[in-house]
Computed example of a mutant assay.
Amino acid sequence: MQGVLLLTPARFGDGPVWSSQTWNHRRLQEAGIDAKFVQVNRSWSAHAGTIRGL
C-alpha cells in the first residue's frame, strides 16, 4: 500500500462527553492496514470532574 490514508473514527456521545474507538485491528486489516495494535479507545469530557463508567 502506498500513499496516505485518512482515518476518521466515529464519535459516540451525548453533549459534552464522547468516546471513540481509534484503532480496531480487524477493521483496519480489512482496509489493507496490517499493524500489531489490537484496539485503542479514546474518551473526552468537556467539564472537569465528570464521572462516568466505560
Rank of each mutant, 00 (worst) to 15 (best):
M1I: 06
Q2Y: 06
G3K: 15
L6P: 01
L6F: 14
L7W: 14
T8W: 12
T8N: 11
T8S: 10
T8G: 06
A10I: 00
R11V: 00
R11W: 09
F12D: 00
F12S: 02
F12M: 01
G13R: 04
D14S: 11
D14A: 10
D14L: 10
D14H: 14
G15Q: 06
G15H: 04
G15K: 04
P16K: 10
P16H: 11
V17R: 02
W18N: 04
W18D: 03
W18C: 02
S19D: 01
S19P: 09
S19V: 05
S19I: 04
S20P: 07
S20R: 13
S20D: 00
Q21N: 07
Q21F: 05
Q21K: 13
Q21G: 04
T22G: 05
W23F: 09
W23N: 01
N24A: 06
H25P: 01
R26G: 12
R27E: 11
R27I: 12
R27K: 15
L28P: 01
Q29V: 07
E30C: 07
E30W: 14
E30D: 09
E30I: 06
G32W: 07
G32S: 06
G32D: 00
G32H: 11
I33A: 01
D34R: 15
A35H: 13
A35I: 08
A35S: 10
K36W: 14
F37W: 14
F37Q: 12
F37M: 09
F37E: 02
Q39H: 13
V40A: 08
V40Q: 11
V40G: 02
N41K: 14
N41W: 14
N41V: 10
R42T: 05
S43M: 05
W44A: 00
W44H: 11
S45T: 08
A46Q: 08
A46Y: 08
A46C: 02
A46G: 05
H47V: 05
H47A: 04
A48N: 12
A48Y: 13
G49I: 07
T50C: 14
T50H: 15
T50D: 11
T50V: 13
R52H: 08
R52Q: 07
G53I: 10
G53F: 13
G53M: 11
G53D: 07
L54C: 03
L54Q: 08
